[in-house]
């Protein structure tokens, strides 16, 4: 029943089109850095809501905390 960063990474990449995710965490608190072209044109709130939506009610329950950073491939390339 324990959660692994790898599980979260696979689920994010499966659910969000063309997403590339890096997830770290200790089984309770996780941090996800997600890049996807679908974030383009969305505000930060909407971008993070897309990632939270992958896990629904599991956030705050099975996944105690998920810290999110979202980028689009374009903003990533500009760094």
């Amino acid at each position: 029943m324990s959660v692994t960063p790898e599980e979260l990474r696979q689920r994010i990449e499966a659910a969000i089109p063309h997403a590339v995710a890096e997830v770290t965490g200790d089984g309770h608190h996780f941090r996800a850095e997600v890049t996807s072209p679908v974030f383009a044109g969305l505000g930060r709130i909407a971008q993070h809501q897309l990632v939270y939506a992958v896990f629904g009610d599991e956030i705050g329950d099975r996944i105690h905390a998920l810290s999110i950073k979202t980028t689009t491939p374009t903003t990533e390339a500009l760094r």
Partner: peptide
């Protein structure tokens, strides 16, 4: 506005 991450950013 957001949660802890967005506020920090």
């Amino acid at each position: 506005v957001g949660g802890a991450d967005i506020v920090a950013e």
